[in-house]
Amino acid sequence: MAFNKNLKEILYSVAAIISALLLGALLIKLSGHSALKAYYYLFYGAFGSTYNIAQTFLKTIPLIFTGLAVAVGFQSGLFNIGAEGQLYLGAFAAALAAIIFSNLPGFILIPLALAAGALAGSLWAAVPGILRAKTGAHEVITTIMFNYIGILLTTFLLKNYFKEEGPVDQTKKIAEQARLPELVANTRLTWALFIAIFVIIIIYYLLNHTAYGYDLQLVGENINAAEYSGVDSDKVIINTMLLSGGIAGLAGSTMVLGVLHRFITNFSPGYGFTGIAVAVLGRNKPLGVLFAAFLFGILESGGMSMQLFAKIPADLMTIVQGLVILFVAAPSIFKILKNKSGIFRGDNS
C-alpha cells in the first residue's frame, strides 16, 4: 500500500510534468514558434552530447543542495526561505578557507573548505532558528531578511578586505589543489555531484531511520504530540535550521570549489529560491528532490540551447518551469480549497 502510494505520487508528478510541457508547447506555438523545434533543442541541449549532459548535471548540483535544504526544513514544519543567503555565506566561507589555508594539501583542504561552507550556512540559519524557537518570530520573515543581510554582508566583506585587483568584485582564485577534480574534462562537472548524492543518501537515512529524524518529522507533523511525548521542540527546531542551513552552505562551497574557483559577488541566479520549487516538486523527500533537481537541470541547460538555436526566449522556459510547479502543487491547493468549502458548508447550516 505504501508502495502504491509512492507509485501514485510518482505517476502524478510525471503526469504534471507532461501536462506542463504540453501547455508550454501551446504557449510556444501561440508566441509564433515551432513547439516541436523548441522541444527538440530542449532535449538536444540537455542530452545532445557528453558536454551537454555534463552541463545538465552541473546545473543540477546546486539545486540538489538547496532543494534538500528547503525540504529538510519543511519536514520539520519550517519554511526556510533563507537558503540563498546561507548559500552565499557558505560560498564565502569556503573561498576564504581555501585561500587562507592554501598551504595545506588537497585531501585536507577540500574537506576543510567544504566544512567551512557548511558551518557558515548553519550558523547563518541558526539565528532565525533560535528566534523562532525562543521568541516565535516566524522564520519566513527572518530568513527573507537574512537573505539580504547575508548577501550584502559577503559583498561588503569582499569589497573591503578580500577583493582582487580589477573591475570585478571577486576574490583571487583558490589554489589548484583546493579545486574539486573534474569528472569530464573542461566541463567543470566535478566530484561535487557525488558529494550531492552522498548528502541525499545521508539525509534519507537520517530522516527515515534515526530517532533524530523521527523527532524532526514529529515536530513538523504535530508539535503538540512532540512535546507531549517528551521531545524538546525548541531544540529540534534549532537543530533543523542548523542542518538545513548547512546543506544550503554546501551548495555555495561546492560552487566555489567546483565551478567558480573563487567567490564572486551575486554569483547565484537564485539557486536558493529555485530550491523551494525543487523541494515542492520533490514532495520534500530526499529522493524526490534528487529527481526534481535533475528536471530543473534539464530545463535550465535545455532552455539555453532552445534560446540559442530555436530563438525562443528563455522566459518561455521559465514559464514551463512555473507550470510544472503549479501542476505538482495543484493537489495541495485543491485540498485547501476543499477544506475551506467544507467550513463554508458548516456555516450555512
Binding site: 518529522q217 514529529l218 507533523e221 504535530n222 503538540n224 504530540a225 512535546e227 507531549y228
Partner: peptide
C-alpha cells in the same frame, strides 16, 4: 492518556 487525543496523543500522518 491525553484528553485531546488528536492534539497530543497521535500523529495522524504517521
Amino acid at each position: 492518556i491525553p484528553s485531546d487525543r488528536n492534539k497530543y496523543g497521535l500523529v495522524g500522518n504517521f
